[in-house]
């Protein structure tokens, strides 16, 4: 009985502090929450034969960090820290596909770092020479973000050599490169990726992105229809509704508003990313 009485104050203190500590730790800035990973050579030297598993742990930590922050709390992650963590993971285990896949899912789009994603993917493809996904991702990044269609074509050829499934994408891509229809290209790319995505956090992001692109595509087609009918470009998107081509203006799933820029291209105030603090968000 005495022991149980002795246990009580400790239990009370435990429950009292645990909840408070949890909320305190949750309120830490994103920069602190991902943690610090020493450079890959240091980790490798200190971890004996555990470096490969550590690489995968770092990738999983990035995924959980991203999932909690973006999916649950609707906050912007620290993109630079995420990029560095994925770089460390790839240097610890150059074959770690999760690191490349995650980098491709977030760096070129949300983080606005296509070159950094390309660097990681090219490093990965130098090792995973059998994996068609890496040249497939590279071809998309070169075409969509860098507008380097020669490089895109080179990687697409490599992807098609490794997996004939990529050939259909090559045909489609060739047409869209020619016609300059970037939105349709991005949609085709996302439709290839979504069914094979296992992470729910990433899948949710890809679905939202695809939904936004579909609406942009719908607006672009309506603009083309308008130009055909009236032999001029619309003044703004509302004109598409006024003349009856569209019933209403579609909503941006990222919470922004679609508008026409000076060149007559469809843009959105959200830059296809959640949160106003988006650093270098993607310009659709």
């Amino acid at each position: 009985m005495k022991r149980i009485v002795l246990l009580l104050p400790f239990l009370l203190l435990f429950f009292g502090t645990h909840a408070a500590l949890t909320s305190l730790r949750d309120s830490r800035p994103p920069e602190v929450r991902l943690g610090f990973f020493p450079p890959a050579p240091v980790v490798k030297a200190l971890s004996a034969d555990q470096y490969q598993f550590i690489s995968q742990l770092i990738t999983l930590k990035c995924l959980f960090y991203f999932g909690t922050l973006v999916d649950v709390r609707k906050q912007m992650p620290d993109w630079l820290r995420l990029q560095r963590a994925l770089y460390t993971a790839s240097r610890l285990d150059p074959y770690n596909m999760d690191a490349y896949y995650f980098a491709q899912a977030i760096l070129p789009w949300d983080a606005g770092k296509p070159q950094e994603a390309i660097d990681l993917l090219e490093y990965g493809f130098a090792h995973r020479t059998w994996d068609w996904y890496l040249p497939f991702f590279l071809s998309f990044d070169y075409a969509f973000f860098m507008k380097d269609y020669n490089k895109a074509g080179e990687f697409l050829t490599k992807a098609a050599e490794l997996n004939p499934r990529a050939a259909w994408f090559a045909t489609l891509a060739a047409r869209y490169y020619y016609e300059g229809g970037k939105t349709a290209l991005a949609l085709a790319y996302l439709r290839e990726l979504i069914p094979t995505t296992r992470s729910e956090a990433i899948k949710k992001q890809l679905l939202i992105r695809a939904e936004a692109l579909e609406r942009i595509f719908q607006l672009e087609e309506a603009i083309a229809d308008f130009s055909k009918r009236f032999h001029r470009a619309p003044k703004d998107l509302q004109e598409l509704v006024d003349v009856g081509i569209l019933d209403h203006l579609p909503e941006d799933p990222y919470g922004g508003t679609f508008y026409l820029d000076k060149q007559g291209k469809v843009r959105t105030t959200s830059k296809l990313a959640f949160g106003k603090g988006s650093r270098g968000g993607h310009k659709n």
Partner: peptide
């Protein structure tokens, strides 16, 4: 794992054995 369940599983179990 996002794309390599078996790779993560084998890496994890070999790490434990080690």
């Amino acid at each position: 794992s996002m794309r390599q369940v078996l790779a993560l599983a084998s890496s994890y179990s070999l790490s434990i054995i080690s």
